[in-house]
């Protein structure tokens, strides 16, 4: 079984290289689903000039690894790769990568979305945006809690 690897890093990442590494030597893979989150230049009606991402070292990795374990219980998947960047980011920069491999597409799609819904509300990251009016911490969205609730997980974050 290919590995699950979670990395928190300041450096950028390369989708093609990560997919190639995850597929390497695994001929059982018939589907690869990936998601990349990127920095928008507008948020809540104002321009965003830059973003700073803070996290809780140690807990972050543990939390995401627990999510991957849960994804493995729910879906027939093979490899999982998660990269989340921290530190200073600019509009259009990549923030987060989730790649899932499986034998068939349904499990890969489902597991990728499940992991992102889970990560948005349960992994200890915080975004601070620099706008023309100054720096501000981003508010959590109840819509993200609702997205996780669709999977039967009632773990409120925003309220």
């Amino acid at each position: 079984m290919p590995p699950s690897t979670v990395t928190i890093q300041q450096a950028d990442f390369d989708l093609s290289a990560e997919v190639a590494a995850l597929r390497d030597g695994d001929a059982q893979v018939g589907a690869v689903a990936s998601f990349i989150g990127t920095v928008r230049d507008r948020s809540d009606g104002s321009s965003v000039w830059a973003m700073e991402l803070e996290h809780y070292p140690g807990m972050t990795e543990r939390a995401i690894e627990a999510m991957v374990d849960e994804a493995r219980r729910r879906f027939h998947i093979r490899g999982v790769r998660v990269i989340h960047r921290v530190g200073a980011l600019m509009p259009r920069d990549q923030i987060v990568l989730v790649v899932v491999t499986s034998a068939h597409r349904h499990d890969a799609f489902q597991a990728c979305e499940f992991l992102m819904d889970y990560l948005k509300t349960q992994a200890p990251f915080w975004k601070k945006e620099t706008t023309p009016d100054g720096a501000r911490w981003v508010d959590a969205r109840q819509a993200d809690d609702a997205a996780l609730a669709r999977w039967g997980l009632k773990l409120d974050n925003a309220v």
Binding site: M59, H84, K120, T121, P124, F125, K127, W137, A140
Partner: peptide
């Protein structure tokens, strides 16, 4: 101890407790 916990969680000697706002990663 680096796992989400609520008010009912009992503390122990050497515990690592953290308080923070709702998370906003991804």
């Amino acid at each position: 101890d680096q796992v989400m916990a609520d008010d009912t969680a009992p503390l122990h000697d050497g515990a690592e407790v953290a308080f923070f706002p709702p998370v906003t990663g991804g």
